[in-house]
């Protein structure tokens, strides 16, 4: 049988993504004012955070900004044990780490983000969490390091 060859090839690629007015406004408020802004659909009244310029359900254009709190409720969670490459560092993210879909207070959609907690026994759908911000904000969603359980979270739990 023939020796079977593989041709190896490393590609270094870069991209320059244009964003949009609403992304720029969201990032400006996040970076300069430590505020989170969502957009409200004029038809179904859903508040999107992250903001959307078009409501996926109604196909209506969104322009009404709504301030959303940096606290919220866990709607889904997992603890990731496999080392996934972190696109912001190029390195595998240290495991285990918690992830959640978090409905921020004032929003109707959920934000996909990290949790401070990585013990599944201490996590529940419905638990209350609070954003932990980076000292120096750079203008990315990673300016929120992760979300941590709120003090007295049991008392603050959603009924």
């Amino acid at each position: 049988m023939t020796e079977l060859l593989r041709v190896s090839h490393t590609m270094t690629l870069s991209w320059r993504y244009g964003t949009s007015w609403y992304f720029a406004e969201f990032i400006r408020a996040l970076r300069d004012e430590r505020r989170l802004l969502g957009l409200r659909c004029p038809v179904c009244r859903r508040v999107y955070l992250p903001p959307r310029v078009v409501c996926g359900n109604c196909y209506a254009e969104l322009s009404e900004w709504v301030e959303v709190k940096d606290s919220g409720t866990v709607r889904a969670f997992t603890i990731v044990h496999i080392p996934i490459v972190d696109p912001t560092s190029g390195q595998p993210r240290p495991t285990p780490y918690g992830m959640a879909l978090i409905q921020l207070d004032g929003a109707d959609t959920t934000l996909n983000h990290y949790l401070a907690e990585n013990n599944p026994a201490k996590l529940r759908i419905g638990m209350r969490v609070q954003a932990v911000w980076r000292e120096e904000r750079r203008g990315t969603l990673s300016d929120i390091v992760h979300f941590a359980a709120m003090n007295n979270q049991t008392m603050n739990d959603e009924q």
Binding site: H9, T10, M11
Partner: peptide, 18 residues
Amino acid sequence: MNNGVIIAGVNLLFNYAA
């Protein structure tokens, strides 16, 4: 992030079977 533009990069390794 720069002026509303995101610069992103990636290194990918491929191993093509001949």
